[in-house]
């Protein structure tokens, strides 16, 4: 299973290099490192993959707890279910310094313009996790709440949805890991390089 996954990863990295001269150079250096026995200490990657690796392992979230799911988000930041070991431990208060917005709680009409404004203030590339049943689709208040928006994806685009009311802290960690997978598979924008 592991060797299959490693071969798969190598194929993905090879296919992401477009220029044939760059490809031969990459394969030559990779073979050289393996021969010298240094591939445990030095890794050679195409530039896009290196940027993705840096971005995926340091996703900084925005403190945006609205309701009950916010308490589980705080529990994930505390010491039993530590989120810091995945690189996401630094919860910033200002959207200008974050990559990730975890919408934890019910979204109402009164709060909607603020969410949109905060999302637009975050710099690209930015990601959104809809945590809990209320943020995914309205939750228990879907049919009868007159001020509740049925899911935060009516206002901003969402990358990962987490079901649960409230979801366990392990579910939030799973969502962050899924997001890291998603980030490492994207092709970084040409302007960003």
């Amino acid at each position: 299973m592991d060797s299959n996954k490693a071969k798969n990863l190598e194929q993905i990295l090879e296919s992401s290099i477009k220029d044939p001269k760059d490809l031969t150079r990459y394969l030559y250096y990779r073979k050289k490192l393996k021969e010298e026995g240094l591939s445990d200490f030095i890794s050679i990657l195409p530039l896009g993959a290196a940027i993705n690796w840096a971005r995926a392992n340091s996703v900084w979230p925005l403190t945006f707890g609205i309701a009950c799911c916010a308490i589980e988000m705080m529990a994930v930041g505390a010491s039993k279910f530590d989120l810091d070991r995945f690189g996401s431990g630094v919860f910033r208060a200002t959207p200008r310094q974050t990559d990730l917005m975890i919408v934890a709680g019910t979204v109402t009409y009164k709060l909607a313009p603020r969410i949109k404004k905060l999302y637009e203030q975050m710099p690209s590339p930015k990601y959104v996790i809809a945590m809990g049943a209320c943020a995914s689709s309205g939750g228990p208040y879907t049919q009868l709440g007159y001020q509740v928006i049925k899911g935060v994806d009516k206002i901003i685009p969402v990358d990962v949805y987490i079901p649960g009311c409230p979801p366990r802290p392990e579910a939030l960690i799973d969502a962050v890991l899924l997001l890291q997978d998603k980030i490492s598979k994207t092709i970084p924008q040409q302007e960003a390089i």
Partner: peptide, 15 residues
């Protein structure tokens, strides 16, 4: 306030 008004009282009259 009112950013989390989830209409509990209206729900409690219906269910």
């Amino acid at each position: 306030i009112g950013f989390l008004h989830r209409s509990f009282e209206k729900i409690a009259e219906t269910l």
